[in-house]
Simulated assay, not measured.
Amino acid sequence: MPHYLRILIVVADGEHARFIRTKEDNALYTEVALNSSEAHKRSSDLGSDQPGASFHSGSSAHHGIAPEHDLHDLAKEKFARHVAHQINGAAKAETFDELVIAAPAHTLQAIRAALDSAASGRIIGTLAKDLVKTPDHELLPHLTEWVRPVDRSGH
């Protein structure tokens, strides 16, 4: 019996991710969907990253210090690391042979940075594009470079 390469397609942004597989008829379907609870919130609802006000001697004026980081951006990066952790787990469990990741450039970079060698060694392609809202049945034209029709008849 021939062995077919199992491909995992991860479509993500800073708030949502879908782990997509191919069916017997080569159609794509979402196997797992992940959503970030923090990334949906406004930065002000996530808390404050401000150290407070600065005081200058010789003056009674206080000046606010600009935050070091936008908490909303940090939540998106945390979610990207979570997605990478899920991919790493799937690679360790050997549930896929090849990996394609489609995400906006910043999210794609954060995911790739958090992948271990087992997962990153299976990457056959990346696409710096936000396809999260693209339905499964409309994804294939974006992925034809890496997702090839499979002849499951054994020929």
Results as ranks from 00 to 15, higher is better:
residue 70 D to N: 15
residue 103 A to H: 05
residue 104 P to I: 03
residue 23 K to G: 08
residue 142 H to Y: 08
residue 89 G to S: 10
residue 59 S to K: 10
residue 122 R to I: 02
residue 56 H to E: 11
residue 98 E to K: 14
residue 14 G to T: 03
residue 62 H to T: 13
residue 37 S to M: 06
residue 108 L to V: 08
residue 101 I to K: 04
residue 5 L to T: 06
residue 88 N to C: 02
residue 134 T to D: 08
residue 124 I to D: 05
residue 32 V to Y: 08
residue 71 L to R: 09
residue 82 H to Q: 14
residue 18 R to W: 01
residue 120 S to N: 12
residue 57 S to L: 15
residue 30 T to P: 12
residue 27 A to P: 00
residue 63 H to E: 11
residue 126 T to H: 11
residue 141 P to K: 02
residue 130 D to E: 07
residue 103 A to Q: 03
residue 72 H to P: 05
residue 145 E to W: 02
residue 87 I to W: 14
residue 70 D to K: 12
residue 135 P to M: 13
residue 93 A to H: 14
residue 43 S to M: 00
residue 70 D to R: 10
residue 34 L to W: 13
residue 60 S to D: 14
residue 149 P to W: 15
residue 142 H to E: 04
residue 45 D to V: 01
residue 59 S to N: 07
residue 15 E to A: 14
residue 119 A to T: 13
residue 66 A to M: 04
residue 15 E to D: 03
residue 20 I to G: 09
residue 102 A to P: 07
residue 11 V to Y: 06
residue 80 A to C: 03
residue 85 H to I: 01
residue 115 L to K: 01
residue 115 L to V: 01
residue 153 S to M: 06
residue 37 S to T: 13
residue 6 R to C: 02
residue 61 A to C: 01
residue 95 T to N: 02
residue 144 T to I: 15
residue 103 A to W: 06
residue 117 S to Q: 08
residue 12 A to T: 06
residue 44 S to F: 12
residue 44 S to K: 07
residue 112 R to H: 11
residue 110 A to M: 13
residue 58 G to E: 04
residue 95 T to A: 02
residue 52 G to I: 01
residue 146 W to H: 15
residue 33 A to D: 07
residue 102 A to K: 11
residue 113 A to K: 15
residue 10 V to E: 08
residue 143 L to I: 13
residue 1 M to A: 15
residue 35 N to E: 15
residue 88 N to M: 01
residue 124 I to N: 12
residue 30 T to M: 10
residue 99 L to D: 09
residue 38 E to N: 11
residue 88 N to I: 08
residue 15 E to H: 13
residue 46 L to F: 01
residue 153 S to V: 03
residue 76 K to A: 13
residue 58 G to C: 07
residue 23 K to Y: 09
residue 16 H to Q: 13
residue 10 V to T: 01
residue 61 A to G: 01
residue 5 L to W: 09
residue 14 G to W: 00
residue 132 V to W: 03
residue 32 V to K: 13
residue 45 D to H: 15
residue 111 I to F: 02
residue 97 D to Q: 10
residue 149 P to V: 08
residue 28 L to M: 00
residue 79 F to N: 09
residue 20 I to H: 10
residue 63 H to K: 14
residue 129 K to F: 11
residue 135 P to E: 14
residue 154 G to Y: 03
residue 71 L to G: 02
residue 98 E to W: 11
residue 41 K to P: 01
residue 98 E to I: 12
residue 2 P to Y: 12
